[in-house]
């Protein structure tokens, strides 16, 4: 075990988090290509390594094929391969790295947050509330997770921390009704941003997903352009199942962007690369810790370079 001192500042944290993510991938690449000719076997192993970083088979094949096209049968160094893979990944990720901007013309700018259980929706809302407050916006929170025990209390703690009022009802209450009240009140008070929490649900549960469509419908009723942003919170440790999650949540709730959480672990989050390729949904932010400051904008170059073990600024 390595004992690490906590790096200060968010960039340090992000890099520390991501480079841990990158360790096994880059270790693999380095071991693979030290003074070696790029032959079929080497390419196949690279493809496997990319799959093992949660990139998914089709994306891994694409990156490998691109490499083969330009370097096949040539002597290659690990640095060269890393740079190449990072550039390829960055090309895919650059268009989706878009921060979440609250349109000031919307009052309130309604953000609906959805996802499967335990990905970090409530924590993300707490962090977003802090972010918007720091940007000088007046924020309101809606405790739409009326299913999980103490989810409301959890959001209320975040409300206290960020000074945002929390609209809540008792556990077991109708989520759609609560959202209706919250939106009405946010309009009355002229709030800038309304962040709506929802109960975690597995995307393959038809009844729970139907409940989510009801929430969306109720929001539409008051403001047919809302929700202005629907965020899917994805856990970075998730594997290829993330594809199904995005597919179904997009279909049911009209997801407009992603937030990737828990990137401070060893999870590589490589699945976002194939997600970007397939869906092209903006990735607004990444979560790299438990405190309110640990939500950062998603940066394609830093992410790609860190994923392959290169310095973020290079």
């Amino acid at each position: 075990m390595t004992t690490e001192t906590k790096p200060k500042g968010w960039l340090g944290r992000l890099r520390a988090g991501l480079s841990r993510s990158a360790q096994s991938l880059t270790g693999g690449i380095t071991g693979l290509f030290t003074k070696r000719r790029l032959d079929d076997e080497a390419l196949e192993e690279l493809e496997e390594l990319l799959i093992a970083a949660d990139l998914g088979a089709p994306t891994a094949a694409k990156v490998t094929a691109a490499l083969a096209k330009s370097r096949y049968d040539k002597e290659v160094t690990p640095e060269e391969i890393k740079g190449f893979v990072a550039d390829e990944i960055e090309k895919t990720l650059a268009p989706v790295a878009q921060p979440l901007v609250a349109d000031p013309a919307r009052k309130p700018f309604v953000v609906l947050v959805v996802g499967v259980n335990g990905t970090g929706k409530t924590t993300t809302i707490g962090k977003l509330a802090r972010h918007f407050r720091d940007a000088g916006k007046s924020v309101m929170l809606a405790a739409g997770d009326t299913f999980r025990a103490a989810a409301i209390e959890q959001l209320q703690v975040w409300g206290e921390r960020t000074g945002a009022p929390v609209i809540a009802r008792d556990t077991g209450a109708d989520a759609a009704g609560l959202v209706y009240d919250a939106l009405t009140q946010a309009r009355k008070e002229g709030r800038d941003v309304l962040l709506i929490d929802t109960a975690g649900r597995l995307h393959n549960k038809a009844d729970l997903m139907a409940e989510l469509t009801k929430v969306v419908r109720v929001i539409h009723k008051i403001d047919d352009e809302a929700p202005h942003a629907t965020l899917l919170v994805l856990d970075a440790t998730t594997g290829q199942n993330a594809h199904r999650q995005v597919e179904i949540f997009r279909e049911i709730a009209g997801v407009t962007g992603l937030v990737v959480t828990k990137l401070d672990g060893t999870a590589r989050g490589g699945v976002v690369v194939s997600l970007a390729e397939r869906f092209g949904l903006p990735i607004h932010a990444v979560g790299v810790g438990e405190t309110a400051e640990d939500l950062r904008p998603f940066e394609a170059r830093a992410f790609a370079r860190n994923l392959t073990g290169l310095d973020a600024e290079g």
């Binding site: 440790t237 998730t238 594997g239 060893t266 590589r268 490589g270």
Partner: peptide, 17 residues
């Protein structure tokens, strides 16, 4: 979580160690 990806081995191994 059964939805965990490739990181499952790291998680399990470190907790076990």
């Amino acid at each position: 979580d059964s939805l965990t990806g490739q990181d499952a081995v790291n998680i399990a191994q470190q907790f076990n160690d």
